[in-house]
Design a protein around this nucleic acid. Structure first.
Length: 136
DNA sequence: GTTCTCACA
DNA sequence: TGTGAGTA
């Protein structure tokens, strides 16, 4: 029953299926701030929670900066309403970005297909104009 | 095993 | 947004 209270970076990495390198990187970016025992990082449940939130944000395609923003609010944890409002703002931004990407992709696909059509027409034209080789 | 820094895509 | 190498 000795429920462990702290964890090493490698334990956390294993648990979330990421590399210790990535965890240090996230710390650099201000997403987490584990306690230190000397220079080695000591992770508490609080850090695990933050990391879990961060990875959820990543799955949604949020930038680390956005994730940092949201997680910071989770900690500050004043009123839930402003947190939810902020979350909606970020999600709205993300959705807008995805919609724009979809538009861009569709535009490129359209151009590509037009070009394909052109190529096919050129091929057919060549067939019509091509003299049969020396054979008969 | 963990740390940091530098370089690299 | 991460990784790899080299270091201590």
């Amino acid at each position: 029953m000795s429920r462990q209270a702290t964890f090493s970076i490698s334990e956390i990495a294993r648990e979330f299926n990421i590399t210790p390198r990535t965890i240090r990187f996230y710390e650099d970016q201000g997403l987490i701030a584990p306690r230190r025992d000397g220079r080695t990082r000591v992770f508490a449940r609080r850090d695990r929670t933050r990391l879990k939130l961060a990875l959820r944000g990543k799955r949604l395609g949020l930038s680390l900066a956005e994730i940092k923003e949201l997680i910071g609010m989770y900690d500050t944890a004043r009123d839930e309403r402003s947190q939810l409002a902020e979350l909606l703002l970020v999600l709205g931004r993300r959705k807008a970005a995805l919609l724009q990407q979809r538009e861009d992709i569709e535009a490129v696909l359209g151009e590509l297909e037009a070009f394909e059509t052109q190529c096919r027409e050129l091929l057919v034209g060549e067939d019509e104009c091509a003299d049969p080789p020396s054979a008969a």
